[in-house]
């Protein structure tokens, strides 16, 4: 089980919509839009699919880039 904190840098005017879209994705919790373009979020996914999840976020419409701020992988936490 991996837990990653990240910031999504959104294109202008897209952040509200993106935050809503992100919150819909299973395993992702969002923590608000900051400075009008950064969405703070945490993703939780099995270790071998975390990368794909982040790729998916990066490829979303309106996403400029994703800054991963932390990544923790815990083998004992079995979901």
């Amino acid at each position: 089980m991996a837990i990653a904190g990240f910031l999504v840098h959104a294109e202008a005017g897209q952040s509200e919509r993106l935050e809503a879209e992100l919150a819909e994705i299973p395993g992702i919790s969002t923590f608000g839009v900051h400075r009008e373009c950064y969405i703070a979020a945490v993703a939780e996914a099995p270790g071998n699919s975390m990368e794909d999840l982040l790729h998916r976020v990066h490829g979303m419409d309106g996403v400029l880039t994703v800054y991963v701020t932390s990544m923790t992988v815990e083998d004992e936490l079995v979901v």
Binding site: M1, I3, G5, L7, F31, R35, A40, T69, E74, L77
Partner: peptide
């Protein structure tokens, strides 16, 4: 819970970066 802690600190870190 450990999981809550990790998620909480991940969120805090991300927010800190802002």
């Amino acid at each position: 819970s450990r999981r809550k802690f990790l998620k909480g600190s991940a969120a805090a870190l991300a927010l800190g970066m802002v």
